[in-house]
């Protein structure tokens, strides 16, 4: 893969995917920094290793599963205690798609 250079539009696209609102000067700075970091990351892109299986995690033992039994969750008032805008029964959010 050739060297990448992120344009401001690409930076804004990735930021939108990540739900990050960025100021214009951040877009400019991140474009430069990501271009430099991805330039380094690209050193592995050329390695001829397509036949090597990917490693997703390093645990040799596999997952430890517990019995699928119900147990109490957090009490509602505790679960809501850290919310920025709770109602007695849930989390209030601004309108969706307003």
């Amino acid at each position: 893969m050739a060297d990448v250079e992120l344009t401001p539009d690409e930076v804004r696209h990735v930021a939108a995917l990540a739900r990050l609102g960025l100021a214009d000067e951040e877009v400019e700075r991140l474009g430069r920094e990501l271009t430099s970091i991805l330039g380094h990351v690209n050193t592995i892109a050329q390695l001829p290793i397509a036949d090597v299986p990917p490693t997703k995690h390093a645990n040799p033992h596999g997952d430890a599963l517990r019995p699928d039994a119900a147990r109490p969750g957090a009490p509602r008032e505790e679960a809501l205690a850290n919310a920025p805008d709770p109602t007695p029964e849930g989390f209030r959010v601004p309108p969706i798609g307003a």
Binding site: L20, G21, N82, P84, F91, V93, P94, G97
Partner: peptide
């Protein structure tokens, strides 16, 4: 910005996510 931590208010939920995380 929904269940815990900082929330920056905005007119719709997507703008709230973006402003909060920024």
């Amino acid at each position: 910005g929904v269940r815990y931590g900082l929330r920056v208010d905005a007119p719709d939920v997507r703008a709230m996510y973006e402003a909060t995380r920024d």
